[in-house]
């Protein structure tokens, strides 16, 4: 299901109930995803929430650049938000399809926000991000800031 700010209130919460439900960003050839249960809101760039820090990073410079959607996340360390131009959709996966990324892949695997990969037969892999690690690794701007 494609997710937009307009759909968020009416549909999103019920769709997020399953632990294996991910908010997926279509960023070919690799797709990024976040556990949907950590998503507090999806809004438009004009409505950047004052309470959220800005996740200013990352992921090859691809994922979190400014765009039409603002996704607000709940980490264990505080709320954070980013904007993206990628189309968002919800997808539910079987728990057994979450394969840990091998530690060899990263220089600092213990703290790296990319935790799992899900291989899909036809539409390419989905990389699952850890919201807490994302928060810790990100260049967190001042609380309440808006990306300029």
């Amino acid at each position: 299901m494609t997710v937009s700010a307009a759909l968020f209130d009416s549909t999103f919460r019920s769709e997020c109930a399953g632990a294996g439900t991910l908010l997926v960003f279509d960023a070919a050839p690799v797709k990024w995803s976040l556990p949907a249960t950590r998503v507090l809101s999806i809004t438009t760039a004009a409505n950047w929430p004052h309470r959220a820090s800005s996740l200013d990073l990352l992921l090859g410079g691809e994922c979190l650049d400014q765009g039409v959607h603002v996704v607000v996340l709940q980490s264990s360390f505080g709320d954070c938000a980013f904007s993206t131009h990628y189309i968002l959709h919800l997808q539910t996966f079987e728990p057994t399809s979450f394969l840990p990324l091998p530690p060899l892949v990263f220089e600092d695997s213990e703290n790296h926000p990319m935790r799992y990969v899900i291989f899909q037969n036809e539409s390419g892999p989905v990389i699952v991000l850890d919201v807490d690690r994302l928060y810790q690794m990100a260049n967190i701007a001042a609380v309440g800031s808006h990306p300029t």
Partner: peptide
């Protein structure tokens, strides 16, 4: 499949035996 930010000599992963 490429993994952004991976080590230079280990640029990605394959799926093998689950």
């Amino acid at each position: 499949f490429p993994i952004p930010g991976a080590r230079q000599e280990i640029p990605g992963v394959i799926g093998w035996g689950h």
